[in-house]
């Protein structure tokens, strides 16, 4: 599975990296972000592209799976 590590990056880099990953792969994409605001932003973006998003909270970051 393609993985995007966007932990610690400022707005709007997590979305830009996610968009890039979704463009270059057909399969699911795993996105790692540090902050709740980034998690919400990536979720919103993925849903706007018609994707399904599931998320899990890890120690100090969020792991989102977009498919």
């Amino acid at each position: 599975m393609k993985q995007v590590d966007a932990r610690g990056l400022s707005c709007p880099e997590p979305i830009m990296l996610t968009a890039e990953a979704l463009k270059t792969t057909q399969g699911p994409v795993k996105v790692l972000v540090s902050e709740p605001v980034q998690k919400t932003n990536v979720e919103k973006f993925a849903k706007s592209k018609g994707k399904k998003v599931t998320s899990a909270e890890k120690d100090d970051f969020f792991e989102l799976t977009i498919e």
Binding site: S10, P12, E13, D60
Partner: peptide, 13 residues
């Protein structure tokens, strides 16, 4: 600039 790869790097906890 962002599209050209601009970033100020990662923040840490």
């Amino acid at each position: 600039a962002l599209k050209n790869g601009f970033s100020l790097g990662r923040a840490q906890s």
